[in-house]
Amino acid sequence: MNKYFVKVEVKLKPLVLDPQGKAVSSALNNLGYDEVTSTRIGKLIELNIEGDSEEKVKEAVTEMCNKLLANTVIEDFSIHITEEINA
């Protein structure tokens, strides 16, 4: 068994309005950061996982995303896996 560290990014689909992002965007503009033209807010989920291979971990996490971690009606997800090397 290898140990993996997995980051799952969950973002609202581009077509879905993000009122939270919009509010933060205008707050940044109000602070003088005029260069900010848009803001989108998502979630970062970190998992520690044991598994045989990166492919198998990816397969399992994809299933987790589809079942629970993301709602694919409104959200997209991306998975980033790094293997943890034992010291």
Partner: peptide
């Protein structure tokens, strides 16, 4: 809606 028995999804109120 989350269980898929009804369609759609929910977002935060647009007023936040």
């Amino acid at each position: 809606v989350e269980s898929g028995i009804l369609p759609g999804a929910f977002l935060k109120n647009n007023s936040l």
